[in-house]
Design a protein around this nucleic acid. Structure first.
Length: 214
DNA sequence: ACATTAAGTGATT
DNA sequence: AATCACTTAATGT
């Protein structure tokens, strides 16, 4: 068994029946994407549906000026709900997906999506469950943006980032955080300083250590 | 040594 | 919370 195959089994094996699993192995194209590469761009048509085998993907929304806002992260075993709706409905992507870490994907041609829906119960369950999970995450993102103050948003952002990277030291500049949260660098610097005084984080040049991971 | 980039801070809106 | 203006610190050439 190849690495990709065992990877697929360990992440999706408990979800899918064996027939489906072997069909995915046969048809799917595995792909590795280096950190920070854009996987899906806004306005792009989607021909493949990705199953995330390894790494993490950052999902962003963008305003008219091309400035981004992080919505949520996908981790292994996840798939992107945007691709689901795009593959089923022939529409363009409304979000951008960026590789947060190095990523390995299994790309399934979109034609198979509909076919499998009728053929495999486990596939149908997976698609519905994925929609449900993404909906929850989207609502959580809305709550975060609407109800939390910037300092709480920032701390949540840091914790999420530490989580998906499996590392409590985050390599990032204040400027980059500001872009992800759609605010200014000065604001981030001040709030980070405050979090450091509260012993929640430690600041270094080009990196931040998260102390209170909860 | 000089230029560039990252980060810290007071003052103002 | 945003912006301006300025300083200080770290890093690259």
């Amino acid at each position: 068994m190849t690495t990709v195959e065992s990877n697929l089994s360990s992440n999706f094996g408990y979800l899918f029946e064996d027939d489906l699993l072997s069909e995915i192995k046969e048809i799917g194209i595995s792909k590795t994407i280096p950190q920070n590469d854009v996987i899906i761009e806004i306005g792009e048509y989607i021909k493949f549906m990705p199953l995330l085998l390894n790494g993490a993907i950052k999902i962003l929304r963008e305003d008219q000026n091309g400035e981004g806002l992080v919505l949520y992260y996908l981790e292994k075993g996840d798939t992107c709900a945007m691709t689901l709706s795009c593959c089923l409905g022939e529409t363009k992507s409304k979000i951008r997906a960026v590789a947060e870490t190095d990523v390995t994907l299994m790309m399934v041609p979109k034609e198979k999506m509909g076919e499998w829906l009728g053929k495999y119960n486990s596939w149908q369950a997976f698609i519905l469950q994925s929609y449900h999970n993404r909906m929850d995450e989207l609502l959580e993102a809305v709550d975060t943006i609407a109800f939390l103050k910037m300092d709480e948003r920032l701390f949540k952002y840091l914790k999420d980032k530490a989580m998906v990277n499996h590392n409590d030291v985050i390599s990032i500049t204040h400027q980059q955080i500001a872009e992800d949260l759609h605010t200014s660098r000065v604001v981030i610097s001040r709030l980070l300083k405050k979090l450091e005084n509260e012993q929640k984080i430690q600041l270094f040049r080009n990196s931040i250590k998260v102390i209170e991971l909860v």
